[in-house]
Design a protein around this nucleic acid. Structure first.
Lengths: 229, 229
DNA sequence: CCGACGTCAAGAGCAGTGCTCTCGAATGTG
DNA sequence: CACATTCGAGAGCACTGCTCTTGACGTCGG
């Protein structure tokens, strides 16, 4: 262990601690994260933070990437937990509930990545690489179902003509194993999954539905049928 | 026209102008709205604004209520535009596209009401009264379809038992004309509608789908089938 | 071993924020 | 006309993100 790498390790620990404290503040104060408050909590002065993050946005980017990866971890773990790989509906429900549970346990981080975008902020490319992990897990179910013959590929006619180019590109770039029409259906499930979670996390279900988990499961069951699992 | 009411009218105009300027700033800077900047734009000093709004939150509340009502107006207008009242699917699609169009034309206001909630802020009751207008328009389609026999009330067995109380209460409080099981399906369409719009408005569809309107229509058609129109 | 270098935290300072309070001027009311 | 209410301006408080400079500390090469 050279001295240089020791320095680097201390620095990495510092970065982790800053992010950790920032996450705590995020939970309390939402996305208006105060660098000074974070620094105060760490017994430092605000300017010292700029040794580790060039700006507030840079810190936010790190938190966003972490959040996407944490969600990706949760999703992949939920999928892997199902030992019966042929139980497509079970895997879908497992992932869906995994997303919901993670979102409820990490509301502020969920809001960070799926809420209203921060005005001036533009997400750098690195975030989208982490973001694709969840859709990828969902499409894997479709691909497995197709391979096992448990899901019939839909008629190509089910896909409106104007959507063909988008889906063709999407298939070519990310999901070669799934035909376009089925892929389109899959994205509907994907959107509904996050739509339902966002509604719950953002409080739109207040005074409407109280049995949240049951209601969520009900919706995901409907989506499973829609997709054809 | 007494003098008092003249003063009141000038005051009301002032309030409208403040909100109008604030909306412009909202579009540019997102939800971190600066009172000082608004005041500057109006050639006033920031403290003068407090004659009209007790706090920044109060101004935000006014903007939120306005936004809900503007959306409600757009939705009701879209529904009323369809002369064939028996064309349930057409009415559903009309409302859905109406929501999407309004959201795209008023992205910042949409984000204000359907994006991540502002941390400390709690929506006062008056906002929910304006918020219910859109769901109400959707349920009216269901009720009309039921009355005309175009929609079959679903089997009660389709509704998971634990959800029964929520739906019963919802029906009793707001939507007496629609049986619980169908109401539950309707809420799924409602959620997907806003889930799809939010995904598009919040940029989650970037680099995924380009034919946005076609894709949105495709989803809403699927939802119409799911609900049974 | 020891001086040079790189890294770090601290402090001052700038321009901006929400918000409060006071003061003088304008304005409609009795 | 005199009174009271309403309004805008200004100063000021505590806070924010961010920059720049200063001084101290640890690491490495000669």
């Amino acid at each position: 262990m050279t001295a240089a790498s020791l320095r680097a390790r201390v620095r990495a620990e510092m970065v982790e601690e800053i992010k950790s404290v920032a996450r705590r503040h995020l939970a309390a104060d939402g996305s208006n994260l105060s660098l000074r408050a974070v620094a105060r909590d760490m017994g430092m002065v605000s300017s010292a933070l700029y040794r580790y993050f060039g700006s507030r946005d840079e810190l936010l980017t790190a938190l966003i990437t972490d959040a996407y990866n944490a969600l990706g971890d949760a999703v992949e773990a939920a999928d892997a937990a199902l030992t019966d790989r042929a139980d497509l509906r079970g895997r879908w429900l497992g992932i869906a509930h995994g997303v919901r549970t993670w979102a409820l346990d990490n509301r502020s981080e969920y809001a960070l990545i799926f809420g209203s975008p921060v005005p001036g902020y533009v997400a750098p490319l690195e975030t989208s690489r982490a973001a694709v992990r969840t859709p990828r897990a969902l499409v894997r179910i479709l691909a497995d179902g197709l391979a096992a013959g448990a899901i019939r590929p839909l008629e190509q006619a089910d896909l409106p003509g104007p959507l063909q180019p988008d889906l063709t590109r999407l298939r070519a770039e990310e999901f070669p194993d799934v035909p376009e029409a089925l892929l389109a259906r899959g994205t509907v499930g994907w959107i509904h999954l996050f739509g339902a979670v966002s509604f719950e996390v953002f409080g739109q279900l207040n005074n409407v539905i109280n049995e949240r988990e049951e209601y969520f499961d009900y919706q995901m069951q409907l989506m499973a049928e829609l997709i054809g699992a």
